[in-house]
Design a protein around this nucleic acid. Sequence first.
DNA 1: CTGCATCACTTAACCGGTAAAGAGCATACT
DNA 2: AGTATGCTCTTTACCGGTTAAGTGATGCAG
Lengths: 346, 346
Amino acid sequence: MAERRGGRVTIKDIAERAGVSKGAVSYALNGRPGVSDDTRDRIVAIANELGWYPNRAARALSAARVDACGLVLARPARTLALEPFFMEFISGVESEFASHSIALTLQLVRDPHEEIAVYRRWFGEHRVDGVLVVDLRLDDPRVDELVRLGLPAVVVGGPVEGGVLPAIWHDEGSVVNEAIRYLAALGHTRVAHVTGVDTFVHTRQRVEAFRRAVRELGLEGDTVETDYSAQSGARATRKLLSSPSPPTAILFDSDLLAVTGLGIAQQMGFSVPDDVSIVGWDDSLISQVVHPPLTAITRDITAFGVAAARHLLDVVEGRAAGDVEMTRGELTTRGSTAPRVPSIAR
Amino acid sequence: MAERRGGRVTIKDIAERAGVSKGAVSYALNGRPGVSDDTRDRIVAIANELGWYPNRAARALSAARVDACGLVLARPARTLALEPFFMEFISGVESEFASHSIALTLQLVRDPHEEIAVYRRWFGEHRVDGVLVVDLRLDDPRVDELVRLGLPAVVVGGPVEGGVLPAIWHDEGSVVNEAIRYLAALGHTRVAHVTGVDTFVHTRQRVEAFRRAVRELGLEGDTVETDYSAQSGARATRKLLSSPSPPTAILFDSDLLAVTGLGIAQQMGFSVPDDVSIVGWDDSLISQVVHPPLTAITRDITAFGVAAARHLLDVVEGRAAGDVEMTRGELTTRGSTAPRVPSIAR
DNA sequence: CTGCATCACTTAACCGGTAAAGAGCATACT
DNA sequence: AGTATGCTCTTTACCGGTTAAGTGATGCAG
């Protein structure tokens, strides 16, 4: 084998073997006109035989594309590890990228400030063709920076003010509404909402929907904010349940929060679901393996990842922009929710 | 601003601004001799002002490095999402890579066969400088392929037969030994081990250590294999606990398995830890938030990721090869283990 | 005053692809 | 016959860096 640098096969090797020029090889392997079918077949056969793959760096240098997209996660590692959402989302993103031979470049950072620095670097280095931005915040500085750079991006989790970047999100409101109506139908009048980070747009959407539903149904409804960490979830649950008139049903904004809340409730002597009903979010197996299994808001996160990735590829190729609103999740009822037991019980 | 393609600043722009040649700019920005200090300072100042970053593709084409490393995960997405190990590991890997401006390219695949195809492509495309290989198997075909390709790699999870690839792993055996001795000291005589995938090297190590400890201590000790999925964990637990003389203590090979096992045990009417003690592995918050919190084998997974990444960078740069054995984990005791209640109780 | 380093830079080739422009030849048309 | 057209392939420039080799100018020793 005529192998060169690092054992890699280049189109030059193929050209020599086929007795044609580099240009002809390039035309042949890219399926473009300019070579006869005979020559093309011969070249393709040689390429396969030698196990040729296009050198990505070389291609990126002339073509504008690097065939890689990026995802930056700015949540604490410990939270990420426990939040099944991200791995499922990534797996959806991956499967879409893989079928287009696009690489996923992942980076974990500590805060949005670092995240912006990563975008600047990635753009300057031409490391990625585009990025997926998660956990959209109100007045998100990342949006301005991405627009300024001109780095193609799709924002996951809420429409962007002014529509300056294409976005994709779930209808969070109507499923919150469904969950609260379900709890009300079970007889609960004091409900609570343990939310995620308050400045995230999807948190706002959920909180607003929660407040609206509570108002419309004439319930009492507290809201407690967390930073998605287990500790803050434990604190929030403890605070709610130690109030003089604790809620009889709690909606949690993530699996991790819900499972933590369940543990705290049980530890405080509350029986779930007899004393307090619990509803989780992002129904993962964790919700199902705990005891009792959790009623939860289910959505197809992998499909969400697929859709986000596809949208980004469209944006990168200039095929489309605009926003995509995915169908809302569903409420899956399990053992952690039950009709409210009249207060004589306690 | 003299900006060109896609708004990116190139050394040509800097050269024009500074009134020098491209070569001089390259020398200046790479801290190599060949330019005066004055000129260097001027060039660096201009580069900073224009926000220049080296185009990675261009650099990769001449230098041999692409400054990216890869990680392929060949477990089902649903399992991955729930297994905190991987995200924690990735976060460790990431933090080490990030401090060297190395990108992490992640790919999820269905099986080792696809994984090999990814390595071939990555190597041919020159997408990565090296890879981290997880879940080492006996007679792992990936090892042969990586050796054949000459793609730098570090194997995570057990030494490679023949030492053909550098590896990094934990001492799994001695911590298993510690856990079983602890259970024996609590009075347990019938113990069980719910393992992961049997062909993984680290599973073998654990199983051997378990069998040795059981033999040495004169215990009865069943081993049941799973594929790490929650379903198979549930099945394994059900099988063990429905035997005529069920074990009074079970060691699970992962958090997910342990939590699932806990749920099944409780569902079957076993009290944990009174009827059966449970020990988990990879002590994540999940183990801590369930009820009772799980006794578990703890190890610093993030540090493991850091060490693996650092070892890979050494290998890529030809600085080192060889194997690294990390310190073993520790047993953290919590509420899921207790002294054995004499069998009169049941 | 010559000879020879040394310094500070420029020139040019190269990495491995892409793609526009050109060249040689056969066929088709007027 | 002359020329236009089309096809197939080659030549060449280019992407944005790196780097070996080359060039003037300066300094300094003999």
